[in-house]
Design a protein around this nucleic acid. Structure first.
Lengths: 205, 205
DNA sequence: TTTAAAAACTTAACACTGTTAATTAAATTT
DNA sequence: AAATTTAATTAACAGTGTTAAGTTTTTAAA
């Protein structure tokens, strides 16, 4: 039947509407200011209607998160052009820092808040978009090791170290902790210097 | 006058009572479950009484945070006995990881939540306890460089890199992101391996 | 075309949250 | 003992996520 298909399509449209407007609210007012009622008001529905399309607020946050990963992956498309693993890893780190600093609210959601992960556990689903990014990271590290550009070690160990450092940089910056180490106006510059330092340091002499 | 002194002392006692009970609530139920009303109930006062001793909830969180730093510094006392800068830096990192994993709620407050920093800005105060820890880190890095144990670089850059990595490890672990990279039971072990890897890598050959 | 069933949506309500203003109770000073 | 200051409370506001019950709209059957 064409009717049930159309209905399904309409349902998906409202779902998208909810998610889009939620993300706008995020970017405009920040994570803590986003409420079910505010989202509902924006799309001209009653607050409880959202519960017909999503289990709870966390699930909405989770899907917003997913769209954040899409955004991040798009930034990394051009990465394939770089053949040198170290150089590629470096550019990947630069992209990561830029993403976090440009869209702190997205970043907050994707890597700092616990709500999206709670939703993920509730849903029994996988972290598909996040996993994809991590796989890419592991592959680059593996590649660099295969080509003898970095000292051999367990891939997971090095990947975790690299990810942790860039995440640490971004999350400390977002939460205004890095300006306790260097003046606020130097934070961004020093973040990039730290990343450069790591890449330079891990590069086999 | 002795009376005004005694009164001041009583006031301080209630302040301490509020902070102690708040921290207990933290450890028992986690950051998100702590409310002004719950704290008040625990100390058998009405919720609004807390506002006679603290400006707002954020200020309470800030002072809880401070006691977290004290706890952390205590763990680092034995550090002075280690003379080799690299070894000292390594042990400092190990302590950091252990602290974060043992007291995730404290860690959350100190380095992940934005509330305590908002309070700090409102109060126009300094991050004395945090600054102290960062100074210690910078000094060790400087020492290691002076002794030619690591490749020379800007101290802030290296300190930021090291801090960011350990913070990244702990915060990603707390927010259940690291188990997307390695199985949950291997997370803690791999975190330590990542730290070891960093120290080994930055050590001048 | 009218009627029964299903789907979509809203209203009302619950149990919370941080916080302020007004009020009462207790302690201190005159 | 009365007046004043300090301490603590009650009531209330405006907001939060969420559920149950009721209403409107749409679809399917008679």
């Amino acid at each position: 039947m064409g009717i049930v298909a159309r209905k399904e399509k309409q349902k998906q449209e409202i779902r998208s509407l909810i998610l889009e407007e939620s993300m706008k609210l995020f970017v405009e007012e920040g994570f803590s200011k986003v409420s079910v009622r505010k989202i509902a008001e924006r799309i001209q529905y009653s607050p409880t209607t959202l519960y017909l399309y999503f289990k709870d607020k966390n699930e909405i946050l989770f899907y917003c998160c997913e769209s954040g990963f899409k955004k991040m992956l798009e930034q990394n498309i051009a990465l394939g052009l770089i053949s040198d693993p170290i150089e590629r890893l470096h550019q990947m780190g630069v992209n990561y820092l830029n993403f976090g600093l440009e869209y702190p609210e997205y970043y907050d959601l994707m890597f700092i808040q616990e709500a999206p992960m709670s939703a993920l556990i509730d849903m029994g689903a996988g972290w598909s978009s996040g996993d994809q990014a991590l796989e890419a990271l592991k592959m680059i590290v593996q590649d660099a090791m295969d080509k003898g550009l970095i000292v051999p070690a367990k891939v997971e160990t090095v990947a975790m170290a690299v990810w942790s450092m860039v995440h640490g940089l971004v999350s400390l910056a977002i939460r205004q902790r890095l300006d306790k180490l260097v003046p606020a106006e130097d934070v961004e510059k020093t973040m990039h210097e730290s990343l450069d330092w790591l890449l330079k340091t891990m590069k086999k002499a």
